[in-house]
């Protein structure tokens, strides 16, 4: 593969406690292209992504060996100023995380913490980035309103604008559209296609059609190993390895064994998570609950609360225009 390298990974290994989640990763990620990481759940996609901006440092008991070069600098070098590194990369997570402040302050957060005080410059910047994220027209009237009041799709675009405001070189996305309705998801996808001329983009996704639409390059990760890496059209047309083929043919996509289903359409917060909790109480540890909701706010709130209670949210995805499904595994009994 011939391209200008932006991120170069050499012999990267990551352990959580004694459990190794990434084995000897060696890849180069191209400049100003979209690289998509695919692979079954739990194979280490998020870990790989977060090792680029050293967010995995925050996990308890994590150990990293190897090197990651960004712009030719090894980011695991002791001398690296990690806040500068992180400023270089905007991160979009699966569920949009708005900061507890106004829309304006969310976008202005990064420039401000890096020392920009000039009000006029900030105003211009906020408007510009909101425009880039395709949100300006929807929020220009209520910039000082709380960001948490936006719809989820809008929140994710706000997160994009916030990341762009840090003036990054790289955009990282960890399944950034999986919690969004199809229209919002499409808007985000469109942003990525527009932005790839200016930024290097690395995305994790479970959605193969999305991967096909967006990817210039594809990484297929399986149990912490890179099975295949190459140009998107080549991998999608004729994968070299049978594992990749199986995955692309949907053999891998695990069907969660559902023990109980709960239809919560028409209920609002906090009613829906109270009902979810009650339903979980009736399950045994390890059993899986699937809930269907159509209340946007709940798509963020319910998984958050449920994880706070110590359970594991296996999947959140939109299943049609109005509904989402959330799959939860019961992990403990009530309080932890």
């Amino acid at each position: 593969m011939k391209f200008k390298t932006h991120i170069s990974i050499k012999d990267l290994n990551v352990w959580y406690e004694k459990h190794q989640v990434l084995n000897n990763i060696n890849i180069d990620i191209p400049d100003k292209k979209i690289t998509v990481i695919i692979g079954p759940s739990g194979c280490g996609k998020t870990t790989l992504l977060k090792s680029f901006n050293r967010l995995i440092d925050l996990q308890d008991g994590v150990m990293v060996s190897g090197q990651v070069f960004v712009d030719g600098e090894n980011i695991y070098d002791e001398k690296i100023e990690v806040t500068h590194l992180r400023k270089k990369m905007g991160l979009l997570s699966q569920r949009p995380q708005v900061l507890p402040m106004s829309i304006y302050d969310n976008v202005a957060y990064s420039p401000r913490i890096h020392g920009l005080k000039n009000k006029k410059k900030l105003d211009e910047l906020v408007e510009h980035e909101l425009n880039e994220a395709g949100l300006w027209n929807e929020v220009k009237e209520r910039l000082s309103g709380p960001a948490s009041k936006l719809s989820i799709g809008q929140q994710q675009r706000l997160c994009l604008a916030r990341g762009l405001a840090a003036d990054p070189e790289i955009i990282l996305g960890d399944e950034p559209t999986s919690a969004l309705d199809p229209i919002s998801a499409e808007k985000i996808e469109q942003r990525f296609l527009d932005l790839k001329n200016k930024y290097t983009i690395v995305l994790v996704t479970h959605n193969l059609r999305q991967a096909k639409r967006l990817a210039d390059y594809v990484i297929f990760l399986y149990l912490g190993n890179i099975i295949e890496y190459g140009k998107a059209d080549e991998i999608f047309k004729n994968p070299k390895y049978s594992k990749t083929k199986d995955y692309l043919n949907g053999k891998f996509i695990e069907e969660h064994k559902i023990d109980k289903e709960l239809n919560l359409k028409g209920t609002v917060c906090p009613d829906n998570f109270v009902k979810t909790k009650v339903a979980l109480e009736e399950l045994e540890v390890g059993q899986v609950l699937r809930i269907i909701i159509d209340y946007e706010q709940a798509v963020i709130e319910v998984p958050k609360t449920i994880e706070y209670e110590g359970h594991k949210v296996l999947e959140v995805k939109s299943i049609n225009r109005t509904d989402w499904e959330i799959i939860i595994e019961k992990r403990n009994d009530g309080e932890i």
Binding site: E281, E282, E284, D333, G334, E335
Partner: peptide, 10 residues
């Protein structure tokens, strides 16, 4: 109360 709250419903 904190203790009893932890008793599993099952």
């Amino acid at each position: 109360d904190e203790v009893l709250k932890m008793i599993p419903q099952e």
